[in-house]
Computed example of a mutant assay.
Amino acid sequence: MTDPTDAELAARYRPLLEQERTDLLAASDDTAEARKPVTLDQTSVGRLSRQDALQGQAMAAAMETRRNGRLTAIAAALARIDEGAFGWCEDCGDFIGSKRLDVDPCAMRCVACAS
């Protein structure tokens, strides 16, 4: 079995990466309100309601942090596509493998080097 060309890799994975980026940015926009600081008005909201609001805000902020990490990985993968380095192990230079890229198109290392 021959390794795919850079053009084949770009044609297969660029649309997937761009779609994931679009979805993540939309999700970020959808949860912007939930990440805003919680107003602690003790005259109108009980202690448990404030705790729930703070917990919800913290979870939304943590999810945004994970989203931003993934967006960074996607940007790096798209840059590797542009440079002709996508799909090739950063350590050994071998092809990462289609199955691994299908699971995570942002993978930078083959299974052997990643373990």
Rank of each mutant, 00 (worst) to 15 (best):
G93C: 08
R100D: 01
A62N: 11
A107Y: 00
C110H: 02
P105D: 04
A53C: 06
I74F: 01
G87W: 02
L101N: 00
A60N: 03
R35E: 09
R14E: 12
T43C: 02
T22F: 05
R100G: 02
A58E: 13
T43F: 10
A77E: 00
T72M: 11
D102L: 09
L40Y: 03
G56L: 05
C113G: 06
R67L: 05
R14C: 04
R21G: 01
P105F: 04
A62Y: 08
D102T: 10
A11L: 10
D3I: 09
K36P: 00
T65H: 15
D104P: 04
P105C: 10
P4M: 08
G56A: 14
A73C: 06
G87E: 01
R50Q: 15
L17P: 02
R12N: 04
T5Q: 08
D52E: 13
Y13A: 07
A85Y: 03
T2Q: 14
D41P: 04
S49C: 04
E64L: 08
D104Y: 13
Q51L: 14
G87C: 06
T39D: 15
G69R: 12
T5C: 12
R35Y: 03
V111I: 15
C110P: 00
A60F: 06
E64R: 09
D91E: 13
W88T: 03
A75L: 01
A114Y: 06
A114N: 09
G46D: 13
A85C: 05
R21I: 00
A7I: 06
R21M: 04
A75F: 02
E83C: 07
G69D: 14
Q42W: 11
Q55F: 11
A112W: 06
C113L: 05
D41R: 04
R109E: 03
D91V: 09
S115Q: 13
G46N: 11
T22R: 13
A11I: 05
A76R: 13
N68I: 03
A32P: 00
A107H: 03
R47I: 02
L48I: 04
R12I: 02
R67E: 01
L40R: 13
